[in-house]
């Protein structure tokens, strides 16, 4: 067992040490969502009342969980985009010719990205009390658990894309065309309640909708707050877990198919 885990942990450890030595990355993954949150949140708070949401949690509060999920998504993207370059030239080639199974390489990378995303997501959790979200211990544990699942799933989604990309430009295109819309239509930005029928359906089919719902529910677990018509706890957790498993398998499959 140890011989299986050693490559996984060393790949994981490397992702973290690299991140620690390039701390500007911390800023880049957090800054943009934070600016979005403050500008869009404050700007829309006055004029936009999310449908199905009580008046009290204003838009800036509604948008908060979405911002955390965006930080997770951005970190996952930044953590996986290096795969594209490192595979063509450099570091990853050396990993690929080592006697390490592809699932181990992907697992190490996924755990690395997950850890980084979690660290940054947790930084944002410190802002929650300022907009009136109060944690109990159970709520905090649930929140961290859901964030871990979300981070793992999103990192694997990033890896799945990165392993089949030839260039980082291609990755950026995918990010703008697929990843950002997935986030936009997850209930992070606006609830499905008021959306036109077709859009509500797209949101219903979007796995991230369930991730955002689970995250919202975990944040408000201890408090009595109306959070609109969201998928149930069970369904959300089921789908987000399934999302993790499928993206991990997909990433492993892609990595195996793309390499010898």
């Amino acid at each position: 067992m140890i011989s299986f885990l050693l490559p996984v942990t060393t790949i994981w450890w490397r992702e973290i040490i690299r991140f620690y030595r390039q701390r500007s990355r911390l800023f880049s993954a957090i800054a943009q969502p934070l600016v979005f949150w403050i500008l869009i949140g404050s700007g829309l708070s006055a004029s936009f009342q999310p449908s199905g949401i009580a008046e009290k949690p204003g838009y800036i509060e509604y948008f908060y969980p979405g911002t955390v999920v965006l930080v997770l998504l951005f970190t996952a993207i930044f953590a996986t985009i290096s795969v594209v370059n490192e595979r063509r030239e450099g570091f990853l080639q050396n990993v690929l010719v080592a006697p390490v199974a592809r699932w181990g390489i992907v697992l190490g990378q996924a755990l690395g990205g997950t850890t980084l995303a979690l660290l940054q997501g947790v930084l944002l959790l410190f802002l929650a009390p300022f907009i009136g979200i109060r944690f109990g211990i159970i709520s905090l544990i649930l929140t961290l658990g859901v964030m871990t699942l979300l981070a793992f799933g999103l990192t694997n989604l990033g890896l799945l894309i990165a392993w089949r990309m030839d260039s980082t430009q291609g990755f950026h295109a995918i990010m703008n065309l697929i990843l950002i819309p997935i986030w936009l239509l997850s209930g992070a930005f606006f609830p499905s309640a008021g959306a036109p029928g077709w859009l509500a359906w797209v949101m219903k089919l979007n796995p991230l909708t369930y991730g955002v719902a689970a995250f919202r529910r975990s944040l408000y677990f201890d408090t009595e707050t109306t959070i609109g018509n969201m998928p149930t706890w069970t369904l959300s957790l089921l789908i987000i877990s399934l999302f993790c498993i499928l993206t991990y398998l997909g990433a492993t499959f892609t990595a195996s198919a793309e390499t010898n």
């Binding site: 490397r14 690299r18 390039q22 063509r88 030239e89 450099g90 570091f91 080639q93 050396n94």
Partner: peptide, 10 residues
């Protein structure tokens, strides 16, 4: 490999 394969941040 031809392309430097060390992690320069390590």
């Amino acid at each position: 490999f031809q392309h430097p394969g060390l992690d320069v941040k390590l």
